[in-house]
Simulated scan of single mutants.
Amino acid sequence: MMKRIIGAVIILALFGYTIYSVLDTSSTAKSDQHSTSEAPEGSAMTPPNAPKGLKVGEEAPDVQLETLEGEKVHLSDFRGQKVYLNFWATWCPPCREEMPEMQQFHEEYGEEVTIIAVNATATETGGRDKIAQYVKENGYTFKVLLDPNNDANSLFRAQALPTTYFIGTDGTIQQAPKVGPMNMSYMKEMKEKLK
Rank of each mutant, 00 (worst) to 15 (best):
A29T: 12
E69C: 11
D147A: 11
P40T: 11
Q81H: 12
L23N: 02
K136M: 10
I116A: 00
I115E: 00
A158L: 09
P100L: 06
T164H: 03
F78T: 05
V73P: 09
A152S: 08
A152W: 03
P47V: 04
H74V: 09
A176W: 07
S154F: 13
A117C: 07
G53E: 08
A13C: 02
L75V: 07
M2H: 09
V113F: 05
A39F: 06
K188Q: 14
K130S: 14
P162I: 04
T46N: 06
F87I: 00
A158F: 06
M187R: 04
N153I: 14
Q175P: 05
A89V: 00
K55L: 12
M182T: 11
T141D: 10
N49G: 12
A132R: 12
G16I: 05
F78I: 08
Q64E: 15
M187V: 02
C92A: 00
E66I: 12
R157Y: 04
T163H: 02
G139Q: 11
Q133V: 10
E66L: 15
V144N: 09
P51E: 03
K3T: 06
R79I: 13
P51Q: 01
F78P: 02
I116L: 09
G110S: 06
V113E: 02
F87L: 00
S37G: 12
P148G: 10
P40G: 13
A39K: 02
M102F: 11
T169G: 10
D151P: 01
E107V: 06
L68E: 13
T18F: 12
A8R: 11
K72R: 14
V9Q: 06
S43I: 09
L161P: 04
A158T: 13
D151W: 04
S35E: 06
T67W: 11
A160F: 02
A29D: 06
N183S: 03
M184T: 08
D147G: 03
I131F: 07
A39T: 09
E66N: 15
Y140P: 01
V56F: 03
L161V: 05
G70H: 15
D147Q: 09
Q81E: 14
C92T: 05
Y20P: 01
V22W: 02
K193E: 02
P162M: 01
G53K: 06
E111P: 02
E111G: 10
K193D: 01
M1V: 06
E41F: 14
V83R: 04
K82N: 13
D147E: 11
F142N: 00
L194N: 07
V135Q: 08
E124H: 05
G57Q: 13
Q64V: 15
P48Q: 01
K178Y: 02
E137A: 10
T141V: 07
Y186Q: 13
V144D: 02
E101Q: 12
M2W: 09
H106M: 07
M184A: 07
L14N: 07
G16M: 07
K72P: 12
V56P: 03
C95I: 05
G139Y: 10
T36F: 12
K72M: 14
D129C: 06
T141E: 08
M190P: 01
